[in-house]
Amino acid sequence: MKPEWRAWLAVRFRTYTPDLNPAEGVRAHLKNSLGNLTPCSIDSLVVLVRTRLKRMQYRPDLLDGFIAETGLIATPP
């Protein structure tokens, strides 16, 4: 890999901060909700993930909390 690409990649990936990404909160919440389940197949895992994500979709307070966790806004809308 050329040196200029290494420098570009280093700058690009150094600026990524998971703490400022609300999707990280969604993933963590999803992972915790699936923690004690043992799906029998990939298809059953897909159904469980979709169900959990659909439940989150109908909880705006939870989603607002993921955004507020980032600290990018003072209060949820």
Rank of each mutant, 00 (worst) to 15 (best):
M1C: 12
M1R: 14
K2Q: 10
E4F: 12
W5K: 12
W5P: 03
R6H: 05
R6F: 07
A7R: 15
A7S: 13
W8E: 10
L9R: 11
L9E: 03
L9A: 11
A10D: 10
A10H: 12
V11D: 15
R14A: 14
T15S: 12
Y16T: 01
T17I: 07
P18Q: 13
D19I: 07
D19A: 11
D19Q: 10
L20C: 09
N21L: 01
A23S: 15
E24F: 02
R27C: 09
A28V: 00
A28M: 07
H29Y: 08
K31W: 01
N32Y: 12
G35W: 06
G35L: 02
N36Y: 07
L37E: 06
T38E: 11
T38R: 15
P39V: 03
P39D: 08
P39W: 00
P39R: 04
C40N: 14
S44W: 02
L45E: 01
V46E: 04
V47L: 10
V47I: 12
V47Y: 04
R50T: 13
R50N: 14
T51F: 04
T51Y: 07
R52L: 13
R52E: 14
L53W: 05
R55S: 15
M56N: 06
Q57K: 15
Q57G: 06
P60S: 12
P60R: 15
D61Y: 08
L63M: 13
D64N: 14
D64Y: 06
G65N: 06
G65M: 06
F66H: 15
F66V: 00
F66S: 03
A68T: 01
G71Q: 05
I73Q: 01
T75E: 05
T75I: 04
